[in-house]
Design a protein around this nucleic acid. Sequence first.
DNA 1: GTGTGACTATAAGTCCGTG
DNA 2: GCACGGACTTATAGTCACA
Lengths: 70, 70
Amino acid sequence: MDIIKVFANNVKKYRTEIGLSQEAFAEKAGLHRTYISAIEREKRSIALDNVQKIADALEIETYLLFVEVK
Amino acid sequence: MDIIKVFANNVKKYRTEIGLSQEAFAEKAGLHRTYISAIEREKRSIALDNVQKIADALEIETYLLFVEVK
DNA sequence: GTGTGACTATAAGTCCGTG
DNA sequence: GCACGGACTTATAGTCACA
Protein backbone atom coordinates (compact mmCIF):
# COMPACT_ATOMS: atom_id res chain seq x y z
CA MET A 1 0.00 0.00 0.00
CA ASP A 2 1.26 3.40 -0.92
CA ILE A 3 1.86 5.78 1.94
CA ILE A 4 0.65 8.74 -0.06
CA LYS A 5 -2.63 6.97 -0.69
CA VAL A 6 -3.05 6.13 2.99
CA PHE A 7 -2.20 9.66 3.93
CA ALA A 8 -4.64 11.13 1.41
CA ASN A 9 -7.46 8.89 2.59
CA ASN A 10 -6.82 9.69 6.21
CA VAL A 11 -6.70 13.43 5.65
CA LYS A 12 -10.02 13.26 3.86
CA LYS A 13 -11.46 10.98 6.53
CA TYR A 14 -10.44 13.06 9.54
CA ARG A 15 -11.20 16.33 7.82
CA THR A 16 -14.78 15.38 7.00
CA GLU A 17 -15.18 13.91 10.48
CA ILE A 18 -14.59 17.30 12.05
CA GLY A 19 -16.84 18.89 9.44
CA LEU A 20 -14.35 21.15 7.73
CA SER A 21 -14.29 21.99 4.04
CA GLN A 22 -10.99 21.85 2.17
CA GLU A 23 -10.91 25.62 2.27
CA ALA A 24 -11.62 25.94 5.97
CA PHE A 25 -9.16 23.18 6.76
CA ALA A 26 -6.45 24.70 4.58
CA GLU A 27 -6.81 27.96 6.43
CA LYS A 28 -6.66 26.24 9.80
CA ALA A 29 -3.54 24.33 8.79
CA GLY A 30 -1.91 27.45 7.40
CA LEU A 31 -1.74 25.89 3.97
CA HIS A 32 -3.35 26.57 0.65
CA ARG A 33 -6.74 25.38 -0.43
CA THR A 34 -5.44 24.10 -3.77
CA TYR A 35 -2.67 22.31 -1.94
CA ILE A 36 -5.08 20.37 0.26
CA SER A 37 -7.01 19.53 -2.86
CA ALA A 38 -3.86 18.23 -4.54
CA ILE A 39 -2.95 16.15 -1.50
CA GLU A 40 -6.32 14.45 -1.31
CA ARG A 41 -6.10 13.67 -5.00
CA GLU A 42 -2.64 12.18 -4.42
CA LYS A 43 -1.05 14.63 -6.79
CA ARG A 44 1.76 15.57 -4.47
CA SER A 45 4.29 13.96 -2.19
CA ILE A 46 4.24 16.27 0.79
CA ALA A 47 7.10 17.10 3.13
CA LEU A 48 7.27 16.27 6.83
CA ASP A 49 6.78 19.76 8.15
CA ASN A 50 3.46 20.02 6.38
CA VAL A 51 2.48 16.55 7.52
CA GLN A 52 2.80 17.87 11.04
CA LYS A 53 0.86 21.02 10.24
CA ILE A 54 -1.93 18.89 8.85
CA ALA A 55 -1.95 16.55 11.84
CA ASP A 56 -2.09 19.56 14.16
CA ALA A 57 -4.99 21.06 12.24
CA LEU A 58 -6.80 17.72 12.37
CA GLU A 59 -6.05 17.57 16.08
CA ILE A 60 -4.72 14.03 15.92
CA GLU A 61 -1.40 12.31 16.52
CA THR A 62 0.84 12.52 13.48
CA TYR A 63 1.39 8.80 13.12
CA LEU A 64 -2.35 8.18 12.78
CA LEU A 65 -2.17 9.65 9.30
CA PHE A 66 0.01 6.74 8.23
CA VAL A 67 -2.00 3.92 9.71
CA GLU A 68 -3.95 2.26 6.97
CA VAL A 69 -7.67 2.11 7.65
CA LYS A 70 -9.40 -0.74 5.87
CA MET B 1 7.73 17.42 19.82
CA ASP B 2 8.90 17.96 16.32
CA ILE B 3 8.10 15.23 13.86
CA ILE B 4 11.37 15.69 12.02
CA LYS B 5 13.24 15.09 15.25
CA VAL B 6 11.21 11.97 16.02
CA PHE B 7 11.74 10.73 12.50
CA ALA B 8 15.49 11.36 12.64
CA ASN B 9 15.83 9.60 15.99
CA ASN B 10 13.84 6.61 14.81
CA VAL B 11 15.81 6.22 11.60
CA LYS B 12 19.01 6.21 13.58
CA LYS B 13 17.55 3.86 16.17
CA TYR B 14 16.20 1.26 13.75
CA ARG B 15 19.21 1.52 11.46
CA THR B 16 21.69 0.79 14.24
CA GLU B 17 19.43 -1.98 15.55
CA ILE B 18 19.79 -3.91 12.31
CA GLY B 19 23.49 -3.15 12.34
CA LEU B 20 23.77 -1.09 9.20
CA SER B 21 26.08 1.85 8.67
CA GLN B 22 24.75 5.00 7.01
CA GLU B 23 26.51 3.89 3.87
CA ALA B 24 25.11 0.36 3.83
CA PHE B 25 21.66 1.62 4.71
CA ALA B 26 21.74 4.30 2.06
CA GLU B 27 22.55 1.72 -0.56
CA LYS B 28 19.76 -0.56 0.63
CA ALA B 29 17.25 2.30 0.56
CA GLY B 30 18.41 3.41 -2.86
CA LEU B 31 19.42 6.79 -1.50
CA HIS B 32 22.66 8.64 -1.09
CA ARG B 33 24.98 8.22 1.88
CA THR B 34 25.17 11.94 2.59
CA TYR B 35 21.44 12.21 2.23
CA ILE B 36 20.87 9.74 5.06
CA SER B 37 23.40 11.70 7.06
CA ALA B 38 21.48 14.93 6.49
CA ILE B 39 18.21 13.28 7.49
CA GLU B 40 19.58 11.94 10.76
CA ARG B 41 20.95 15.36 11.57
CA GLU B 42 17.53 16.93 10.91
CA LYS B 43 18.89 19.06 8.14
CA ARG B 44 16.10 18.18 5.76
CA SER B 45 12.34 18.00 5.85
CA ILE B 46 11.96 14.97 3.66
CA ALA B 47 8.98 14.11 1.47
CA LEU B 48 6.68 11.15 1.87
CA ASP B 49 8.02 9.06 -0.98
CA ASN B 50 11.43 8.92 0.66
CA VAL B 51 9.89 8.28 4.05
CA GLN B 52 8.43 5.14 2.57
CA LYS B 53 11.70 4.13 0.94
CA ILE B 54 13.40 4.45 4.30
CA ALA B 55 10.71 2.51 6.13
CA ASP B 56 10.98 -0.25 3.53
CA ALA B 57 14.76 -0.41 3.89
CA LEU B 58 14.38 -0.57 7.68
CA GLU B 59 11.80 -3.32 7.21
CA ILE B 60 9.31 -1.69 9.53
CA GLU B 61 5.85 -0.22 9.21
CA THR B 62 5.95 3.36 8.02
CA TYR B 63 3.98 4.80 10.91
CA LEU B 64 6.55 3.49 13.42
CA LEU B 65 8.94 6.17 12.24
CA PHE B 66 6.55 8.78 13.63
CA VAL B 67 5.90 7.25 17.01
CA GLU B 68 7.95 9.06 19.58
CA VAL B 69 10.19 6.77 21.61
CA LYS B 70 11.05 8.11 25.00
C1' DG C 1 32.13 5.92 8.84
C1' DT C 2 30.25 10.34 9.24
C1' DG C 3 29.63 15.68 8.99
C1' DT C 4 29.43 19.55 6.04
C1' DG C 5 29.01 23.33 2.42
C1' DA C 6 28.12 23.92 -2.14
C1' DC C 7 25.94 22.88 -6.14
C1' DT C 8 22.06 21.84 -10.12
C1' DA C 9 17.65 19.79 -11.13
C1' DT C 10 13.28 18.75 -9.82
C1' DA C 11 9.38 18.69 -6.87
C1' DA C 12 6.95 21.01 -3.13
C1' DG C 13 4.12 24.68 -2.22
C1' DT C 14 1.67 29.50 -3.33
C1' DC C 15 -1.51 32.08 -5.82
C1' DC C 16 -4.09 33.50 -9.76
C1' DG C 17 -8.03 31.76 -12.09
C1' DT C 18 -12.13 28.57 -14.42
C1' DG C 19 -15.96 25.04 -14.73
C1' DG D 1 -17.25 23.26 -2.08
C1' DC D 2 -14.27 20.92 -5.00
C1' DA D 3 -11.33 19.60 -9.25
C1' DC D 4 -8.17 21.28 -12.20
C1' DG D 5 -4.83 24.32 -14.80
C1' DG D 6 -0.92 27.72 -15.49
C1' DA D 7 2.74 30.38 -13.72
C1' DC D 8 5.47 31.36 -10.17
C1' DT D 9 8.82 30.97 -5.83
C1' DT D 10 11.07 28.18 -2.47
C1' DA D 11 12.55 23.86 -0.60
C1' DT D 12 13.94 19.23 -1.23
C1' DA D 13 16.33 15.59 -4.01
C1' DG D 14 20.41 14.00 -5.08
C1' DT D 15 25.41 14.30 -5.73
C1' DC D 16 30.27 15.82 -4.94
C1' DA D 17 34.84 16.94 -2.83
C1' DC D 18 36.81 17.56 1.39
C1' DA D 19 37.36 17.64 6.27
